[in-house]
Every structure is written in C-alpha cells, then in structure tokens.
Design a protein around this nucleic acid. Structure first.
Lengths: 345, 345
DNA sequence: GCCACCTACGCAAACGGTTTCGTGTTAATA
DNA sequence: TATTAACACGAAACCGTTTGCGTAGGTGGC
C-alpha cells in the first residue's frame, strides 16, 4: 500500500524546502527552470495530488455544497439534485447530501453538522415538519454566520435568503382555467395537508380560477390526503360520494392513484373525468392513460439554485463586506398534455 | 454577521492558552475546575463548535464517505442511496454523492477529486461505460492507496474489494421456473446490451431455467434494447413478429413499456401474456395492471454497503497494518407478485 | 528549610498546504 | 573594486485543532 505523497516527502527526497516544492508545482516564476523541472517530474512520477483538506483549511473554503432535502426516493427532488450536481461539478464543487426525512430535528442536526466548516453553502427544501412548526432558527443562524443559503420549492418568507420556486399558484390557475374552458364544471382538488407551501399555493390557484369563472366552490370537492401514507379508503370514499368531471392533484402519485379508483368505478378518462397532476415524473409518463401534468422543471431549478449559491459563495470570497441582496427566482411551470385530459386549445 | 468563533478567540478573550481551552472543552483532568467552568460557559455562550476541517486534517479522517453512482434519477439507486445515507448518519458520517452519468471519464474524475483527502472511503456502482471498457485502473489505484471501497450491484471481479450484490442469476432463474410451472412455454427476455453485469447475470438465469425444463432457446425471443433510450419501434416490432406467453424484463421501465405495447396489440395480461420486471419501484406498484417484479432491496443493499465500508474504515483507523480480507455479500431478491402474472404456487 | 510531588497550565510540534518576507549568491554596473 | 539588482531559494507564519511534555507555583513531609 503506497501512502499518499506530500510536499514534505518530495522536499526531503529532492533536498529542497517545502516552499520550493509548493512554488515549483504552481510553476512560480520564483523557482529556477531546472529545479522546477526536477520537482515537477518527480511529482508526476509519484502522482502527487495536493490534499484537499489542507487546502480547505488554508483557504477557508471547501468547494463543497450541502444539500438538504426531505426525501431522496422522490422523482422531483432527484431531478433537482441532478441539476445541482451537474452545475456544481462544472464549477469544481462537490455535493454533500443529507436527507431530513421530513423531520425537523434531522434537518437541524444535519445543518449543524455541515455548518461547522464542511461546506461553503446550503441548498435546501424544507422538511414538512419544519413548515408545520414554522421554526426557522437553524436557518437564521446559518445565514447570520455568513453561510450562503438557497431555498427551493419548499421555502418560507421568514428567512431572508435566495430562493427558487415555480409559479405554483399561476400554474394551478392556468390548468383549472383550461379545464373550465374545456367544459368541465365540477373540478375537484386532491391535495396534502396545507402546511406545505406548494400545496397551499396550488390550492389558491385552483380557487382563484373557479372564482374568476363564477363556479361554485364546493369544499366537498377538495380532498386532503395525508402526505406519504396509503389512504385508499379516503380517496375511494371521495370518488364514490361525489360527482366530478375533472381532478387536479398536487402530485402525480395522488393523480395515478385517483385515476385507478375512477377507472374501477367505471369512469372513462378523459371523456367522463379528466386528470391533471403536478410533477411530471416517470409515473405521469407511463401511466395508463398518460397523465397530463405540470412539469416543475426540477433540473432547471437545481441548476438555478446551484448557480445562485456558487455565485454568492465566490462573491463572498472575493470582496470582504457587501450589502446583502436576496433574489427569488421563479421558474415557469409547463403543462405536459397527455391522454388523461381532453385536448386543450 | 457574527464570525465563527475559534479556540484562539476564546483563549484571547479569557487570557489563557489555546491548549488550555481545547483541553477544558474536552473536560480534561489537567485543567482546574474553575478554569474549565469559565471556558465551558464562555464556549456555550458563544456557541462554539470545533471546525470540522481542522479536525479532519489533524485526524486524517473526514467522516465523509463518497458515493459514485451512474444516475440519481433512478429508483433503485436512490433506494440504495437512502440506505447508505441512513446508516452513515447514525454512525456520524456524511455522504458526498457524485453522478458518473454512465460515463467512464466522469467516474474517473470524480474518484480522483474525492480521493485526495475528501473522503474516508467509497461506495459505488460502476458506470455502464466502465463495464464496457473493462478499465478499472482508477479503482485499483484507490484501493492501493488504502482507501476502502465497496462496490454494489454493478461490480467487477477484476477489483479486489468488498461487494454487495443480489442473486441476479438465481432470481431470474426462479422467476422463469415459476412461469414455466404456470404453463408458459414461449418466454421472452427483454434486456439491455449485455456489458452490464446485472443484465448478463439475469440472462443466464433465464437460459438456465429454460434448459432445465428442456424448453428450446429461441434467440428471437431475446430482445436487447439500448439502455436509457427510447426505442418504441424496436420493441413494437418484437411483439408483432413473435408469439409469446410471458416476458421477463431486466428492469421495470422495459416491462411497463412492453406491457403497454402488448395491451395495444390486444393481448390480455396475464391471461395471454405474463410480465415480470426487475426493480420493484414505483412503476411496478402503480402500473396497470400491477407489475410482478423482483425486489432488489436497494435500501438493504445500501445499509449493508455502508456498514461494510464504515467497519473497514474504523478498523483501518485503529490498527495499523492487517491482511486484507474482502467479502462479497449477496442479498436475496424477493418476488413481489402482482396482477401481471397468474398466481404462482 | 529542603526536597519531592502535585496541580494547573503553557509551549510547541504536528496535520499538509500557501504565501510573505527575507537572504545568500551571482553577475552586472559604476 | 564596491554597489546593487536579479535570481533562486528557505524560514516562518498561518489556517484550527490536538496532545505530549515541560514547568511554575504551591503543598506537604521530614
């Protein structure tokens, strides 16, 4: 087992000082041609690579970014992650991922672990529990320490930092409007408990569209399902008890489940009932019939977040102080039409 | 913006030496009660947390593990990742993820980036290109440097290290056997190009089962699809040109696609044709009909890999030298029966 | 009153680099 | 020949911690 070689080894071996080796390997003008050649050849031969940790300590930057997401087995978050990872990689950054598992405590612990020098900045989507609890002190502490933070998707107004979101309200509004124009009158909404900001926003868009077209708001047509739990019976009852001709779901899992139930109840899709979901993931694509859904452009969100974060990191590193300016970028969602809805105009 | 506080700050403020502060915070017996109390109180007040990077440098261990996978928007890999992350977290480790994107070069670059001190060990699944190219020098270099490595799922015999795999061959064999016992005679295999070891192993199980039951091996019933590319026409032609009564697919995407095609061609599932896929992911669960599939227990694989890696890391850190013993753990796959197959016995 | 021994702390090296600031040698210049 | 500038390199500080060892000061025993 050949040990990792260090500057000290090279210096000792070639009988020069450590600083000379360091400079030679950086091709500094200070060092003579011959010495440089000798050192560089030696370093190449023994495949010298500087120790990242030592450099991090010296430079007070790690070139790591910390990503904290509620779940990793989740199509949307993985696409965002892919965007982050890809962009970060082109800029020479690595990504440390922690999963909060929707838990406030895990989110706090993970942040604290990473905040002590392991990373140069955070990208995160809030855990459900955090949004429910509305306790953002861990985020505030981090930003007060001067660690850049970018929130995406699951954000909050209570923390001053950069954010990337999609126009949830507008997207839902547009979808419902299209359904109405296509002649649907009893449009249902299947959502999560509303502490999740995205669900709340989508619901608002839904209500606004109904109001604008003078359709009655029937709370019986709004189903709140527990997030990430099987609840076959609830949804079944919902479809048995209510008549409707269109359903907007805040995610694709709800949508596909509901389609299955509706089909069993003899509904034809999309003739009798139309379905639209959020998150254009693998399920929407392969569902039968294909599910019309709102593409949240996760990868672009990830790239955008990474870009904002890295720009801030590098700016902080250059200049000393500087007034903080925070941005919120809004990515426009796109409707992907498939067979679960009638042709829109 | 309150700067991160260091030992030096505390020392200066309380007019003691840095080492005294360090020892006091570790509750060392060397330091007097009063001094300890004073220092500890001060540290708590200013929320002192030691700098991870400095500790890493000192201890020559980062408590980071590097994970390199071919793709992150992929159900199986994310479940494995979840297992890794969960286990690592309980042991106080963080996870740095790099995505090779099935590219040999990216795999090499990522490994080299991380190998220079950023991580204590690797967990990885080989990129498709790496398996095709059969060039494993980057892996060998890393292991020769004494960095522990655990391969999972996409492994190779050419590198001596710990491995975690499922019994692909046996699982495929068992599935095909069950299909035969259920009376199926023309069983097709839909696979990827065979440089992927898992596909090759599954194909072997398929062939062995056919042979054992004296069924003819008809190469026309084996369809090789390009991995991760749309190829509607290829598969359509396959189903139009050949009669078959069961199909084993090496992943669930292929399976769901094929089911769709078969349904359009008028086949009834499972009466006329049965489908089985590998990877019991979200698609299998929500497909219509539900897809019988081989659960690869990704999360358990991840936990197992993380456990093996961390044990090795900590053993290396304790004892000095030690003969290397490498294990290959085999996780038993499980068949999840759903509506795409007739009831098995 | 002397020695020995704790107690309680500081010094300094070490981890592996980078970088500033000397400094000795040489050669060019006056 | 004395002065000086350029060149080539080394010493040392620094990033933040840890830790072995040295030591000042106080206490106790004889």
């Amino acid at each position: 087992m050949k040990q990792k070689i260090t500057l000290k080894h090279i210096a000792r071996e070639l009988d020069v000082s450590i600083s000379t080796v360091s400079k030679a390997l950086k091709n500094s003008e200070e060092i003579g041609r011959d010495t440089k050649d000798k050192i560089q050849a030696f370093a190449r031969l023994y495949n010298y690579k500087p120790n990242n940790i030592a450099i991090s300590l010296k430079n007070k930057r790690t070139r790591n970014i910390g990503v904290i997401i509620p779940d990793i087995v989740h199509h949307f978050f993985t696409t965002v992650f892919r965007g982050i990872e890809q962009f970060a990689n082109t800029k020479g950054y690595n990504v440390i991922v922690c999963v909060s598992d929707e838990s406030f405590d895990k989110e706090v612990i993970n942040m604290e672990m990473l905040a002590n020098g392991s990373i140069d900045g955070f990208i995160m989507a809030l855990a459900g529990e955090t949004q429910l609890k509305k306790d953002f002190n861990h985020l505030k502490e981090v930003t007060e320490q001067g660690i850049p933070l970018v929130l995406f998707d699951r954000v909050t107004d209570e923390v001053r930092c950069d954010k990337v979101i999609i126009n949830d309200e507008a997207a839902a509004h547009q979808v419902v409007k299209k359904l109405i124009k296509a002649g649907r009158k009893r449009i249902a909404l299947v959502t999560t408990e509303d502490y999740l900001n995205v669900s709340a926003n989508r619901a608002e868009g839904y209500y606004r569209a109904l109001k604008e077209h003078n359709l009655p708001i029937d709370e019986k047509l709004v189903l709140e399902l527990p997030y990430q739990q099987e609840s076959e019976t609830l949804s079944k009852k919902f479809f048995e008890d209510n008549k409707m001709d269109a359903v907007l779901c805040v995610n694709e899992i709800f949508a596909v489940k509901c389609m299955g139930i509706a089909q069993k109840l003899g509904y034809r899709i999309p003739e009798d009932i139309a379905f639209v979901g959020f998150t254009d993931g693998i399920l929407s694509h392969f569902a039968n019939p294909g599910l019309t859904s709102v593409d949240q452009h996760g990868q672009i969100m990830g790239e955008t977040a990474a870009q904002m974060l890295i720009e801030k990191i590098e700016r902080d590193h250059e200049n000393e102080v500087e007034e903080e300016i925070f941005e919120t970028k809004i990515i426009a969602a796109t409707l992907i039409e498939r067979a679960s809805t009638p042709k829109f105009l």
